[in-house]
Nucleic acid binder design. Structure first.
Length: 807
RNA sequence: GGACAUUUAGCUCAGCUGGUUAGAGCGUACGGUUCACAUCCGUAAGGCCGCUGGUUCAAGUCCAGCAAUGUCCACCA
């Protein structure tokens, strides 16, 4: 047998071999007919537009996968799908950039065709990559957020919520990205600090008096519709109720009062425009102020802006300031730093704009949603606070429509005659009202046959928020709702708690009156060498494919599970190399064991009393390891489990135990040799299983080469997780073992330091030996003597005196 | 301004419900081995455990305050 075992572990060949094997044998396939408990997983569908996969992706997917593999080996029926998010704005932007095209200058058909082509290509790259990493995904469950099943689910979600009165359409101010030319939701915004100028501008009152307002947005002066003061502000008591004249446009606006005005801010006199910020929108709503929208959807000023019409925002600001200066109306100006909202996808500043949009009413659900959040078990627990904070801070209903081309269409038509909203039946879905009319062709209310389809598309989260329902085939007659829903586990990173997690919670609360999952697992970020977030625009980008190519998937996975759940992890090639080292070490240890257990009878089961001391020790340590690794994995503490495994394997098993029993393996005493062989094989077998979730390729190779027999499962990944064997779980043995290791250390020290400190070391040695139980020692003495001999020392345990160096 | 997290050896991080001389990996220096190990083993150097107070017989570990870093949120007149 030993002749057949290759000396080196050929990473690339072997990993590829088992990946093909797993697929062929359908090791990871979900079995809907099994009676085993189901463990269903809701994994993030990554955006295909991210055309480079980096080590950060590897980290979060691997961490989740280790937990999943553990549950699979515990005999649970794993439902582990993969999805691709190839829907919506990110994909559009990717295509725009790649082909350098402008959405408004191409037809919808051309554009969506390109999007579909790119997502198909991207999907292939992703699938290949995830497979090369060894993810135990059931690829037969693959979904894409633009495929017809997802569209159907998203549209049915819309219809269901519409019927429940949760969805409304309103022509109101919305967050608007002038670069993408679409409405946005609160969750699509990001903060950005920017330097700007606070300018003090003179306004005249009708009676000729002058007042001063402060603003960072002078270009909105032509859109001013009111001034506000605090009702108790002595300075302005007299002017409240009067009219002011807006400079440059000479329009009359009223001076109103509101207790919400902050007297300390600026001059205490507040200019309200259509609409510069959230305050403006609120005042506009509450006091029914006039509307004077001077910025168009493309970001240019429109005809209502008078002489500034046609200018871009920046140009308009310059022009307005120039004009104000010419008229000596700017009485103060200072540079300030303030934070403005930018669009998360394109980083352009977000404005307000009014146009008809679809909304889901969520502001009245805050308490319910927080309660749903509490039904879920959070790992790590503090991550739940991010959700609560977000819910507390909600100010707007969820705007679900986007003025774009590529995405799931709304299942909505409008009657051209009576403006009735026309909806399809569930069995018609998916529909595309932009392309085809409703089934019965005319308006059910007025009979009008001219019907318009809704041209907007859904927010990408409208689809992503129903991934559990897509997977459970909620929309199908024969669905898996009972089997896999609510799902067992959601895995994701923390930055999309406010989007993906929150929106999914909203949907499942409204559709199924449950939380969507029982547990969530939130991972941190993989950081670049410099500690910054990995991003391909920076030089800290670590292409995951290249690392796998250079080392191995298993080594990269070993790095990925090095941080505790929820913590960020800095990438370091040294750590990957350390992972590679443990692969080699495991391979060699297994090879050694295989060579020395070739002819042993593996069927017989020895009991502790038939074993030598050292063998009982390592097996008792093994039981402790089995117990604690399971404990850690139950708590999603894969990093701690990994450390336990490493330390047991490398230090206790390889450096100490194997060295201790080599003499018996090479010796003539068949009984003593068999005792060691038995412990060696039992330990190796357990280790291969315990390491399997972390290092799936290597452990599969070891299992197939050294462990598997005709009665075993075809793969280590579906073979049973090790259990504690009470017969060998012996604390007394572990205590003796600790002493045993001290004695070995003392022997090595004597060797290393020769004469130096000799007496101390000999004392350590004898004291260590004396600390052992008598029967344990008498049985282990020959093993120790062997170690001593291997270190060129002979020691007389009886007299505790003689030390020879056979130099 | 609010929230959450982090702060322990040169680097990356462990240190559970407080208890003897604070640990691992990598890196560094030195020594040994190459008969499982394109290696491996051993030894050493290196830490006011962010700062300040408090509780306690006893604190890296609990409490309070402060600081730095990261992230999220709020503030945009």
């Amino acid at each position: 047998m030993s002749a057949e075992i290759p000396k080196n572990y050929n990473t690339k060949e072997i990993e590829k071999k088992w990946q093909i094997f797993w697929e062929k044998e359908r090791i990871y396939q979900f079995n809907p007919d099994s009676s085993a408990p189901v463990f269903s997983v809701d994994t993030p569908p990554p955006y295909l537009s991210a055309d480079h996969l980096h080590a950060g992706h590897v980290m979060s997917y691997t961490q989740a996968e280790i937990i999943i593999r553990y549950h699979r080996m515990k005999g649970e029926n794993i439902f582990y799908p993969m999805g691709f998010d190839d829907n919506g704005l990110p994909t559009e932007r990717f295509v725009e950039k790649k082909y350098n095209i402008n959405k408004s200058k191409t037809t919808r058909k051309e554009f969506t065709d390109l999007c579909l082509k790119e997502t198909a290509a991207g999907g292939k790259v992703y699938e290949k990559f995830w497979k090369s990493l060894g993810l135990s995904v059931d690829w037969s469950l693959l979904y894409s957020t633009i495929d017809s099943r997802s569209q159907k689910t998203a549209q049915r979600s819309f219809l269901d919520l519409f019927r429940k009165g949760r969805i409304y359409r309103e022509d109101a101010p919305v967050f608007w990205c002038t670069a993408c030319q679409t409405a946005l939701a609160q969750a699509d915004l990001e903060d950005k600090e920017e330097k700007s100028f606070m300018r003090d501008v003179k306004f005249s009152l009708e009676n000729g008096d002058e007042v001063v307002i402060s603003t960072t947005r002078p270009e909105l002066i032509p859109a001013c519709v009111a001034l506000y003061v605090h009702p108790d502000d002595e300075r302005y008591r007299k002017i409240a109720g009067q009219n002011a004249i807006v400079p440059l446009v000479n329009e009359k606006v009223s001076v109103r009062t509101s207790p919400l005005v902050d007297r300390e801010k600026g001059t205490g006199l507040m200019m309200v425009c259509t609409w510069g910020d959230v305050e403006d929108v609120q005042k506009w709503k509450e006091d029914k102020l006039p509307t004077k929208l001077i910025i168009g959807k493309d970001g240019r000023f429109n005809e209502k802006a008078g002489k500034y019409a046609g200018l871009k925002l920046r140009e308009a600001r310059e022009a307005v300031v120039r004009d104000l200066e010419d008229q000596n109306l700017i009485v103060g100006s200072r540079e300030i730093t303030h934070v403005l909202n930018i669009h998360e996808r394109c980083k352009n500043p977000v404005d307000f704009y009014a146009s008809p949009q679809w909304f889901i009413k969520i502001l009245d659900l805050k308490d319910d949603l927080k309660k749903r959040g509490e039904e879920i078990k959070w790992h790590p627990s503090f991550m739940k606070i991010h959700l609560d904070n977000w819910i507390d801070g909600l100010k707007w209903d969820w705007c679900i429509s986007r003025d774009r081309y590529y995405g799931v269409p709304f299942p909505v038509w409008y009657c051209a005659g009576c403006e009735e909203i026309i909806l399809p039946e569930d069995d018609e879905l998916p529909v595309d009202p932009r392309e085809s009319p409703p089934r019965n062709g005319s308006c059910p209310r007025c009979g009008e046959s001219k019907i318009k389809g809704e041209m907007q598309v859904m927010d990408t989260w409208m689809t992503s928020s129903v991934t559990p329902l897509i997977n459970a085939r909620w929309q199908d007659r024969k669905n898996l709702m009972k089997e896999i829903y609510p799902m067992t586990l959601r895995v994701q990173a923390f930055e999309i708690i406010r989007t993906w997690l929150f929106y999914t919670l909203v949907k499942s609360h409204l559709h199924t009156k449950t939380a969507p999952w029982r547990e969530v697992m939130i991972s941190g970020w993989g950081l670049g060498n410099d500690g910054q977030k990995m991003s391909k625009s920076l030089n800290n980008f670590v292409a995951a494919g290249a690392i796998i190519e250079k080392y191995s998937a298993d080594a990269l996975r070993f790095w990925a599970c090095g941080a505790m759940l929820g913590m960020n992890l800095r990438f370091s090639e040294e750590d990957v190399r350390a992972g590679q080292k443990i692969l080699t070490k495991l391979w060699n240890a297994a090879r050694f064991i295989a060579m020395n257990t070739e002819n042993m009878n593996r069927k017989a089961n020895l009991s502790p009393k038939n074993l030598n001391s050292a063998d009982r020790w390592i097996l008792s340590e093994l039981q402790k390891l089995v117990r604690s690794v399971a404990e850690q994995l139950d708590n999603y503490e894969f990093a701690k489990a990994k450390i336990l495994l490493e330390q047991f394997f490398w230090i206790k098993f390889a450096d100490n135990y194997i060295e201790l029993i080599k003499g018996r393996l090479y010796g003539e005493d068949a009984e003593k040799k068999y005792s060691a062989q038995f412990a060696l094989f039992k330990t190796l077998s357990a280790l291969v299983h315990l390491f399997a979730p972390f290092l799936p390729h290597l452990t599969e190779e070891l299992y197939q080469c050294f462990i598997r027999n005709s009665a075993s499962p075809v793969s280590v990944h579906i073979s049973p997780w090790p259990e504690v064997d009470g017969d060998f779980d012996d604390e007394k043995m572990r205590k003796n073992g600790k002493k045993l290791m001290e004695v070995i250390a003392a022997i090595r020290k004597i060797k290393a330091e020769k004469g130096v400190k000799l007496s101390e070391n000999i004392t350590a040695l004898t004291v260590g030996a004396r600390g052992l139980d008598e029967s344990f020692f008498s049985n282990a003495a020959s093993d120790l003597q062997n170690v001593a001999r291997a270190n060129a020392i002979s020691f007389d345990w009886q007299s505790e005196k003689t030390v020879d160096f056979s130099t």
